[in-house]
Amino acid sequence: MTQVLTPRDVPLGGLRAMRVRRTLPQRERTLVGAWCFADHYGPDEVDETGGMVVPPHPHTGLQTVSWLFAGEIEHRDSAGNHALVRPGELNLMTGGRGVSHSEVSTPGTTTLHGVQLWVALPGAARDARADFEHYAPPVLRGRGWRAAVFLGSLLGDTSPVRTATPLLGAELVLDPGTALDLDVDATFEHGLLLDAGSVVVAGEQVKPAEMAYVEPGRSLLRLEALEASRVVVLGGPPFGEQIVMWWNFVGRTHDEVVAAREEWQAQITRDGEVVGDGQEVADGRFGIVVGDHLPPVPAPPLPTARLKPRA
């Protein structure tokens, strides 16, 4: 079965909010393997949108995967990592039990374009310490296509980046008229997010910003580019665990998420008010983002109903 998932537009904070297109999670599908979140943005002219300005905010139970097509983003986190996200280079941050980080497009960035992805951590790894990895994969080339494999294995290349569950992550750029057969793991389900162009995936035509979901059981995926196209390929075996995902937290129960929210709020507030500078934040479970002077982001109110696990 091939299912086409359509995105919804979401503002990414602030008065001049940068708009993103979100294909995961949604009512029809929460996960593709362990991939639990997919935002797709740009190409945006920074002079018009204000670029990306995401102040310090928390994460638990997940990994963030940053992948750019254009522009540059400065990453800082409470584990002491300070790095730049550049096109064709993977930045993977492990939140584990708790981490906070900020993401701000650099002054020299004129156009911002890329994807922000999350990976749910399995029970055995979700209390791990915060961590960070950077990897610049080689560019693979064939007749009518080029590719970069940033996680897992595809097209004869394997990423050295460690993951808690088997994963696939790759960027494919296809020339018009190219038909590319991908040998894939038949135990994986796959999500193919189309950035630009027009592609037929396993017989289904996909439009820009849509994601084609392909269930397990296929050892070959055929992509046919009707015009010049760029695709992000995601995959992994069905996750096998239910998750509770709310705001920036991935947990297993409603109470676990409530506790994480309360800890973050207690860490960033003084006398009931959010501190005015990131350096004034108390060093609690989520830590301090050293070198970032933006005020931290307060957690939104919880919904009135209990959060339900999603398969």
Rank of each mutant, 00 (worst) to 15 (best):
D255H: 14
E72V: 08
P303L: 07
E263L: 15
P87I: 09
L167M: 13
G114V: 04
T253N: 07
V206A: 09
G203D: 02
Q205Y: 01
L90E: 01
P300H: 05
V200Q: 13
I288W: 05
W247F: 12
P160V: 10
L302S: 07
A125H: 08
A17I: 04
R143Q: 13
S78N: 04
L15G: 09
K308I: 14
L294G: 06
R29A: 09
G203Q: 01
G61Y: 03
V4D: 02
N248V: 12
R126H: 01
V184M: 06
P7Q: 02
M211D: 00
V274P: 07
G42T: 03
L5N: 00
S219K: 13
V149A: 03
D283R: 15
K207F: 11
H101T: 06
E210D: 11
G144P: 05
E133S: 13
E103L: 10
P237W: 08
L84E: 04
M93K: 13
R97Q: 12
A38L: 14
V214A: 11
P208I: 07
P107T: 05
E204K: 12
P11W: 07
V85Y: 10
H57M: 07
A259M: 01
F188C: 10
D39R: 00
H57V: 10
A260P: 00
I243N: 05
T110W: 03
I73M: 11
R19F: 04
Q279F: 07
G96M: 03
V206N: 07
D175H: 07
G240Y: 00
V4C: 02
P176T: 06
A17M: 04
G272T: 09
P56S: 08
F69P: 04
R126K: 13
R162A: 15
L294Y: 13
G95M: 01
K308E: 15
P55S: 10
S102N: 04
F37E: 02
G152R: 05
R27S: 11
R19G: 08
A124L: 05
P11D: 02
R306Q: 11
Y213G: 03
V139D: 03
H113F: 15
V258L: 13
D39Y: 01
M211S: 04
V10R: 12
L220P: 00
H113A: 08
V257S: 05
G42I: 02
V258E: 06
L172K: 01
G236P: 09
D131H: 13
R143N: 13
P58S: 04
G169N: 00
S219Y: 11
H75N: 11
I243E: 03
F239S: 00
S219N: 15
D181K: 09
L194C: 12
Q242T: 14
A311E: 12
P298K: 03
A125G: 00
V275Y: 04
L12W: 14
P160M: 12
G203L: 03
A148P: 01
R310N: 10
H134Q: 15
E89A: 15
E48G: 01
V65N: 05
T187I: 08
